[in-house]
Computed example of a mutant assay.
Amino acid sequence: MSGTTRERPLTPAGRRVLDVAGRLFYERGIGQVGMELIAAEAGVTKKTVYDRFGSKETLILAYLRARDERWRAFLGERLAAAPSPRERILVTFDAMGDWLRTNGSRGCSMVNACAEVPDPGHPVHKTAAEQKAWLRGLYLELATEAGYDAPGPLADRLVVLHEGAVVMFSVGGMAHATDIARETADLLLTA
């Protein structure tokens, strides 16, 4: 993608645009937010938005990547502080609960974007699939690190548990969904 934010650093105006777009896309949905609104709330011209990002699609992808980077950094801090490999697995659920309560009342931005863009060939789906593959890979790495005999099937179960908790928190209104997911993960790790 020529001219994207992945190839060059953001200017202060570009950072404002991305921050505003991210907030609006997450809170209102990507289909409900136009470039005019983003420009107005970022205090820039619509031309600046297009000069920096090129298209709404590129801006949406930049938003998804930026939000994912923030989640990974947030989770990484929690993982680094966990005292054991087994606890590193469980702390992913604690971190997810804290993230959802402070950053994610509408659930997963990747899932939300895929719901709004139903074409499976759209780049949004590729970005979301990459994020979900990363999460499954993280669980595989953690399960292997903790010495479990069948880390692949365990990683599958943990990622399904994780994603299910996000949905039940945001869509099902279950405030304690991540606590239940953690307890269930603990049972899986003990079995």
Rank of each mutant, 00 (worst) to 15 (best):
R136P: 00
R101T: 06
L37Y: 01
R136V: 01
R52V: 13
G107I: 04
T127C: 14
F74E: 03
I60L: 14
F53G: 08
G137F: 00
I38D: 06
L138W: 00
D119V: 04
G43I: 13
A42M: 06
A95Q: 09
P118A: 12
R70P: 00
N112I: 12
A115G: 13
P118R: 05
P118I: 06
L140E: 04
H125N: 07
I60Q: 11
G29W: 02
T92S: 12
F53D: 07
L90A: 07
L64K: 01
A95L: 09
G97I: 00
C114K: 15
D119Q: 03
G97K: 00
E36Y: 07
A82Y: 07
R78S: 14
E41T: 04
S55T: 14
L79G: 10
Y50T: 12
V49I: 10
G107R: 10
S109T: 05
A129H: 12
L140N: 00
A113F: 03
P83F: 01
Y63Q: 09
C114W: 01
E116W: 02
F74H: 14
D119H: 07
T127E: 15
C108R: 12
P118L: 11
E57L: 14
T45K: 02
L135F: 01
A129E: 14
A133I: 03
Y50V: 14
L140K: 00
A39D: 00
L142C: 04
P118V: 12
D119I: 08
V124G: 02
A62E: 15
R136M: 11
L61M: 06
E57H: 04
A143D: 05
D119P: 09
A146C: 03
A128P: 11
V33S: 03
A133V: 08
Y139H: 02
G54N: 05
G29I: 08
A80K: 13
L59N: 12
G43M: 15
F74C: 13
K126Y: 13
W71T: 07
W134Q: 00
L59K: 11
P118N: 07
Y139C: 01
I89G: 03
L90Y: 09
R67D: 15
S105I: 05
R72W: 02
W71S: 06
D94I: 03
S55C: 07
P123W: 02
